[in-house]
Amino acid sequence: MNRAVGAAVPAPERPPLARKIDPGRALLTLFCVGVGIFLILPIFIVIPISFSSAQFLQFPPPGWSLQWYQSFFSNHAWINALKTSALVAVPTTILATALGTAAALALIRSTFPGSGLINAVLMAPLIVPVIIAACGIFAVFRFWGLIGTYSGLILAHTALAIPFVVVTVSASLRTVDRRLEQAARGLGASSLVAFRRITLPLILPGVLSGALFALVTSLDEVIVSLFISTAQVRPLAVQMWSDVRGAIDPTIAAISTMLFGFSLVLLLLVSLLRRSSR
């Protein structure tokens, strides 16, 4: 059919294109557009709902308003949850980035006895299903009196975030030529100075994307937090979880839209960091 169109309408300026269109490829493209819509539409549909003027879930919205954002910002429980999330996520990010970066440096730079075992320990939170971690942490933290505390949430989230930092920093360390640091050492720099002036700037994009991974891990974590938080100390994700289970309140759409905007910003940051590290 494409060939017929090409013959009926002589397009002398672009003949190669007409020949290149292949029906199989067109079908494949159509299929992939469908898959793309399936991936992305559900997230975007939340945005118009969050600005709806209707009193309940309705699509398309009959009019626009900011009432669901108002209902979020005027509700004590939500604001407290937001504060708790920030108070947990920031220390988690710092702690996980520091511990994970140091571990990645050691693992990439040298081999030592038991490094396979140590690596298994560092990667464990990626492999063990979160529900198992949640039950185990719940039991031990109850014994240690950490249930319903900020420190409990920070410790648990840091444990879950460390492997992401280790993996991201390791990936960027592997692209760094060790001879640069050795040259600095040879020119008389101490190992600390050589690291700070040569290696650290080179791996900084990797460290920062590791930190973003840790931040997102803490903000999105539901299952472990569900076990170890209380009504007083309850992060945003847990508050959302209990709300979504109850009713489909458009306030959730407002929060989802804000979280989605935040993830988009982070995604852009990560891709910028990746580009600058190349």
């Binding site: 571990a103 040298s110 464990a124 939170p125 198992i132 971690a133 942490i137 444990a159 460390i162």
Partner: peptide, 24 residues
């Protein structure tokens, strides 16, 4: 030096992750 760099993360995970899961 490497042991000193990797030990904090490994110990942290042993206490807050591996031990609780093992106990469970």
């Amino acid at each position: 030096g490497s042991a000193a760099l990797v030990a904090p993360a490994a110990l942290f995970l042993l206490i807050t992750f591996v031990y609780p899961v093992g106990l469970l």
